[in-house]
Design a protein around this nucleic acid. Sequence first.
DNA 1: TAAAAATACTCCATAGGTATTTTAT
DNA 2: ATAAAATACCTATGGAGTATTTTTA
Lengths: 93, 93
Amino acid sequence: MEIRHLQSFIALAEEGQFTAAARKLNIVQSGLSVTIKEMEQELGVQLVNRATRNLSLTHGGELFLEYARSSLATLNEVRLLASPTGFEPVLSP
Amino acid sequence: MEIRHLQSFIALAEEGQFTAAARKLNIVQSGLSVTIKEMEQELGVQLVNRATRNLSLTHGGELFLEYARSSLATLNEVRLLASPTGFEPVLSP
DNA sequence: TAAAAATACTCCATAGGTATTTTAT
DNA sequence: ATAAAATACCTATGGAGTATTTTTA
């Protein structure tokens, strides 16, 4: 699982629809469909209840949504705090 | 960045050495070297100070280590809580 | 000079694309 | 009949391997 796939899942949860989420993510619907399936495989947890026009999160999906959001938020903090503030000089080789 | 790469970075931080960390991860040293470089690229943050026989984490590396640990810990909780306990019946297609 | 890290390739797995089919309204 | 999801296939990217070179203690 790629970290960017957390974004994919968040988008799906927010849009409530593969097609719309994929559009938002600038990827194609089929790709998102496969990606979410693979995430479910890797986690061993079903994330969404699929119905052609009614998508909902499972209990696991809700949990994972929280995880994905806080994980990405923390990652952004790391990015921000680590480099410009902490001023790590690049080692000259 | 793959989620498994968080493990790679944690191993590197703990072992303090690419060779030993790679061995622990059952991957090859050169692969780990490249992976960490790519993570630094993707994050825009230098994670380790490299010296042939003295490796240390940068400030960003310390921050990222905390992130990696808590992220993986939470992910494991999700895995555990979501599926056997919550008992999500697999939808019959 | 002997360890650890980096570099240069090669290969294969897979993310994401196009095209199409299935499904439910 | 239409809109959404799934499936089948293809391609390109990149993770990880082997072999080798550089580095410094």
